[in-house]
């Protein structure tokens, strides 16, 4: 399967309406829209890349997720802000129980948040009662994330796919915390595996059970099939070499978005042949 690099959004010449310091989170909505969090704002784009909406967040956003009902959850240091699709602040979860929130996902009515400070994924029910922690039950007392970001995504079956960069794996967890298995291993320079000290840094689910991951130190994005086999490398050397923790998202058409963290651009990749939805 091949991907084409179709578009670049933003960049150093984008002026004051673009992000100035960081793009940390990307999410693809079911409506084909792209949501991006960075600096202290959220930007919403239509599929053509036009800015539909921009609103401010209380703190710099580290990640964001779009719920089935259209609400937008933005993870920040120590809090999660919940906005309506129109950018209205509906609610904010604050308090000492939240560390550095670097990923948010949904499991039915429950919310899962990745806490990079605690190196685990926390699962809350709709009443914000903590049900359990995921990824703590191992010798390293949590995920190995020297890169500082813990990223995961939940698939339709409720399985959590979480990047464990220190182990060079993408791990699959059940919502109750049981480790189902993993894909990936360290393999030097071979693109079939994950290189460097800690990769992949970010993960997203593509269509057909595929995994989209980003790597640092030789910044690149890759598409893997559900068994972890390499499908395609999306751009080597098109991202700045200093990139780290590039957020990634994939929408229902298989389109892949990668947030380049140094020059603040969003790269868009599309499958060479349109897939059946």
């Amino acid at each position: 399967m091949e991907y084409r690099h179709t578009r670049v959004m933003g960049g150093p010449e984008s002026g004051p309406d673009w992000f100035r310091h960081a793009i940390r989170g990307l999410a693809a909505g079911r409506d084909g829209r792209l949501y991006a969090a960075g600096d202290s704002r959220v930007m919403v784009f239509d599929p053509a890349g036009k800015v539909l909406r921009t609103w401010a967040t209380a703190k710099p956003g580290c990640c964001l997720a779009v719920a089935a009902d259209g609400r937008v959850l933005v993870g920040e240091a120590g809090q999660v802000e919940i906005f309506s699709g129109a950018g209205q602040l509906l609610q904010a979860w604050r308090g000492g129980w939240l560390g550095e929130i670097t990923a948010i996902g949904f499991h039915g009515a429950e919310t899962l948040v990745a806490d990079a400070a605690a190196r685990c994924i926390r699962r809350y029910d709709s009443g914000l009662k903590k049900l359990n922690d995921i990824g703590l039950d191992n010798r390293t007392n949590g995920f190995l994330i020297p890169n500082g970001v813990l990223d995961f995504e939940v698939d339709a079956a409720g399985v959590i796919h979480a990047a464990n960069p220190g182990k060079h794996r993408v791990e699959r967890y059940q919502a109750d915390g049981k480790l189902l298995g993993h894909v990936g291993r360290f393999d030097g320079l071979n693109p079939e595996g994950f290189p460097g000290c800690c990769n992949p840094t970010n993960v997203a689910l593509g269509t057909g059970g595929r995994l989209v991951v980003t790597e640092k130190a030789e910044s690149r994005a890759k598409v893997l099939d559900s068994g972890g086999k390499l499908v395609a490398v999306l751009g080597t050397r098109i991202f700045d070499a200093g990139c780290k923790n590039m957020a990634v998202a994939s929408d229902f058409r298989g389109r892949v978005y990668v947030a380049e963290t140094v020059k603040l651009r969003i790269f868009v990749f599309e499958p060479a042949r349109a897939e059946a939805v």
């Binding site: 020297p146 220190g166 182990k167 360290f186 393999d187 030097g188 595996g193 290189p195 000290c197 130190a217």
Partner: peptide, 16 residues
């Protein structure tokens, strides 16, 4: 970072 595959300790470009 206490990494398993430390890029300063190993030549991460060498054969696995």
């Amino acid at each position: 970072g206490r990494c398993c595959v430390c890029p300063a300790y190993f030549n991460v470009k060498s054969a696995v």
